[in-house]
Design a protein around this nucleic acid. Sequence first.
DNA 1: TTCCAGGGATATA
DNA 2: TATATCCATGGA
Length: 267
Amino acid sequence: MYKTEIDKIIVPKDELDVKATLECGQLFRFEKTDDVYTVKSGGHVCKVCTVGDEIVILTSSVDFFVNFFNLDRDIERMRRELARFSELAAPLESCGALRILHQPLFETIISFIISANNNIPRIKAIINRLCASNGDVFPLPDQIAEMSVRQLDAIGCGYRSQYIRNSARICADTDILDKLQTSPTADAQKLLMSLPGVGQKIADCVSLFALGRFEVFPVDTWILKTLRVGKETESRLRTRLMETYGTNAGYAQQLIYYYNAILKAKG
DNA sequence: TTCCAGGGATATA
DNA sequence: TATATCCATGGA
């Protein structure tokens, strides 16, 4: 169990695998220097380091990061329930307590629109530039809604610029963000996919990383290439994986993706 | 030069 | 419903 003080959160090492949690592809606003991670989300910032058997999260936004790191969620239970799947043995052994984060909704939507047909270093760079122009704080819906496509082009959003601007306008002008928080997952996904630039995969990522819907299994190009059986469609593959892992599908997906696509690929 | 990156929109049959 | 093509950008 974690402890909090005025400006720090202390978590036992076996309850938070910092590297896996931050580097598994769910988050883009972090950097590592000398074994210290700097993590930014919304307008908040923290530094994460390992001290002995504990993880120390230094921040002036303690409540925000307790929620952000999902520290009240029982990871052990999910890991026990997934232990019966042989294909997850190596990832579970290797990863420790990878945590699915609980990220701000609008920021997650825009970040994953930017992620489409893009690579992680470039996604991070674009989001950094987007925040840099706003005092290192992720812009609010109305702030992006008021940006021009030209401005978004200038920070490298490419053909996604109009998607970003138009989705931000919908978020600023309607109650979609509130509705998403309370809607059942199927309804939330329909709402998400009504946003320009948001298809099934990005809707799944937002559902998992911002709305805490662990029953979804985002199917990206890597998952499709490696887990597809024969000529199975993307949609069938997604359904099959959701049925296989049930309420822990999203957690299984992150274990599989991080261990195989990121950890092993990097060596 | 070509290919690819945590995809999505659009046209076509 | 299913498949093909296009979309900016930059590193490999």
